[in-house]
Amino acid sequence: MVIPWELLVIQLLNGVIIGMILALVASGLTLIFGIMDVVNFAHGELYMLGAYMGTTVMLTTGNFWLALGGSALTIAALGAVVQVTALRPLLGRDPLTTILATFGISLVLQNYALWQYGPVARKIDEPFTGQFALFHLQFPWYRVVIALLSAAIILALWLFMKYGKYGIWIRATTQDRVMAAAMGIPVPLVYTMVFAIGSAMAAASGVLYAPLVGINHAMGLDVILRAFIVVVVGGMGNLAGSVLAAIFISLLEALASLWVSPAQAVIVSFIVLILTLLIRPTGLFVPTPK
C-alpha cells in the first residue's frame, strides 16, 4: 500500500510531539528510579493531580503559566511529603515493598481526586489557539509549543544534574550512596529532593497536556503504562535514553497506524518492550557494558 508523503510528514510530526510529551512524563519516572531504585506506580496520579491543581490555580489567577508553575511547586511539595512519610521508612527494604507502597498511594490519590473534584471532566484552556496549515489539516501551534517546552524542561533538568550543586549531590548519591553520605551529602534529603523534582515534572506534563485531552481522575492510567514502557526501553534510570525511547516508540506507533489499524499500531510499543527485555534488558539506548 502506497502512503502519500504528506501523511508521512504529518505522522512524523505527531510522533515527535507526542514523544516529547511522553518523554517529560517518563523523565520524572526514570529520575526517581535511577536514583532511589523506586518504581513509582503513583507517578500517573501525580500527573493527574498536577492537572487538577492547574485548574485550581487557573481559576484563581486566570493565567496558564502561573498554573503551570504553581501546580509543579504544589505537587513537588506533595511528592516530598509522600517520600518522607511513606517511602523513607522503607529505604533498604525489599523493592517489592516500595512498589506496593506506591501502588497504594496511587489508589489513594486517584480516589481523593474523584472525591475532591467529582466526576465532571475538567479543562485548562490553552494559552493560545492559533493553527497553521499542514496539508489537509489545520495543525495547532500549541502542540508544537508543548513539545518545545517539554524539551526545554528536560534540558533544564539535565543542566541542573550536570552543573548544579544539588545535581552533583544527586549524581554522587546515584554512584555510591555510602560514599556520598561519608562525604557529608545528606542522602535522605537528596532522595526527598529527587522525588519532589520527579513529582514536579509529572505535574508540569499534566498541566501542559490537559488542554488537549481534558482532565479526569483516571487520566494518569492512560499515560503511566506507556511511560513505563519508555523507561524500560530507554534504560531504567537513563534520562537521555528515556527521551530517545519516547520519541522512538511514539514515531513507531504513529507511522505504524498508516499501514495497520490503530489498535494494532498500539501493539507495536509492546512488541518493542518484549524485544528489548529479550535482547537488551538494560535498555536500547544504554551504551553496551564493557
Binding site: 502542540r143 479526569n216 483516571a218 504513529a254 490503530p262
Partner: peptide, 28 residues
C-alpha cells in the same frame, strides 16, 4: 483503542471528500 489519551495520530489520517465525521465515544 480504549484508553488512548491522544487521538491526534489517528484523526490526522482522516481526509478526503466526504460530508461528516461520526464519533462513537464516551467519557474521556
Amino acid at each position: 483503542p480504549l484508553g488512548t489519551a491522544d487521538f491526534t495520530p489517528f484523526l490526522s489520517k482522516i481526509s478526503g471528500s466526504f460530508d461528516g465525521l461520526f464519533g462513537i465515544f464516551f467519557g474521556p
